[in-house]
């Protein structure tokens, strides 16, 4: 069960805030641990007692179904207790700040906190105010590290590695925390990344992150190994970034025609929830290239790995403090 990978590296971080600050070796450590949990699960070990007696808090200050469920199940698979707190920003209207809310939950004995928040950097703020280990479950338009990891895990399962691969991130890059986590993870592991979408949804200076920019999906569709179709995030757009959904789907939607011009072994990923008929047609979503449900499955194991590795760091810290 020891997660020290072939590199001999050990996980030492108290928080998982983003993939930007991780080394390639640390990312591989997480992926290896997730793969190990998946193997155990396949062997019938569906419930492990690694986090027995630990309480994990799921703090969702922004609506989420999939990620919250996945983290909750991941904690339960490790035998942790969970407390769930859900609130959209406005229901903190009793005047309590978000930090105070988290402090109160921490005072109930929560030592690991999974945080989703609409403000970029909110988990970083908690990390400076709380003793608990923080897992970023998506902060504003910044990062969504476990989504990035599950995308990496899914690609690795199908392709064995990342060297020589070209991955296209298509759609709303500007408002996408998934895009940023994918860019950091993929480029660190040796893949090439091309971001593709309407010019209004490509953030300024994105090339400085080591990616290529394309405004034409048809131009790149035949050359890439993986296409990750990001969601159009209407809720984060202050005004229209493109003329119409119809026009968006016409230029950037993945449909049957485009999939036939793609490589025969192209992988189609989507972080979901998907807007069928916008980012991709049902033919693509449910077709042979789609690994969308693999992503969901792997998400569970990636989150188990994150909670487990952070827990071991806090245990080590407690042992050191006791000495």
């Amino acid at each position: 069960m020891d997660s020290a990978s072939s590199t001999g590296l050990e996980w030492t971080r108290p928080h998982l805030l983003g993939l930007q600050e991780l080394s390639a070796a640390e990312i591989l450590l997480l992926l290896d641990q997730a793969a190990e949990f998946k193997r155990l699960h396949g062997a019938g070990e569906t419930k492990l007692d690694l986090l027995k007696g630990v309480t994990v808090g799921n703090l969702f200050f922004e609506p989420s179904t999939r990620t919250r469920t996945s983290f909750s199940l991941a904690a339960k698979r490790l035998s942790a207790d969970t407390v769930d707190f859900s609130s959209s920003g406005s229901s903190l209207s009793k005047g309590e700040t978000f930090v105070d809310t988290a402090r109160n939950i921490e005072a109930m004995g929560v030592t690991q906190m999974v945080v989703r928040h609409s403000s970029s950097g909110a988990p970083h703020l908690l990390a400076t105010h709380l003793a608990a280990g923080i897992v970023n479950a998506g902060d504003g338009t910044h990062e969504h590290p476990t989504q990035g990891l599950l995308d990496l895990m899914t690609i690795r399962e199908h392709r064995g590695g990342f060297q020589g691969l070209t991955v296209a991130l298509v759609g709303d890059i500007l408002h996408s925390r998934v895009a940023r986590s994918n860019i950091w993870g993929l480029t660190k592991l040796g893949a090439k990344v091309v971001v593709c979408g309407p010019a209004t949804l490509i953030p300024p200076y994105i090339e400085q992150l080591g990616v290529r920019v394309s405004y034409d999906l048809d131009e790149i569709v035949g050359e890439v190994d993986v296409i990750n179709l990001l969601r159009i995030q209407a809720e984060r757009q202050r005004s229209a970034f493109f003329p119409s959904i119809y026009e968006y789907a016409h230029f950037f939607g993945m449909n049957g025609d485009r999939i036939r011009r793609a490589r025969h072994d192209v992988l189609i990923l989507a972080p979901g929830p998907i807007n069928r008929g916008v980012e991709l047609t049902p033919e693509v979503a449910d077709g042979p290239h789609s690994v969308i449900l693999d992503q969901v499955t792997n998400g569970l194991f990636v989150r188990m790995a994150s909670l487990y590795l952070l827990h071991r760091v806090s245990q080590r810290g407690a042992r050191l403090a006791a000495r």
Binding site: G121, T141, R177, R180, Y205, L209
Partner: peptide
Amino acid sequence: AEGVMHEGAVSTVLGLRGIP
């Protein structure tokens, strides 16, 4: 509108709305 920091490479990395 709704900008938080200078618009540039740093705002892109941080996912914060820029003020050009």
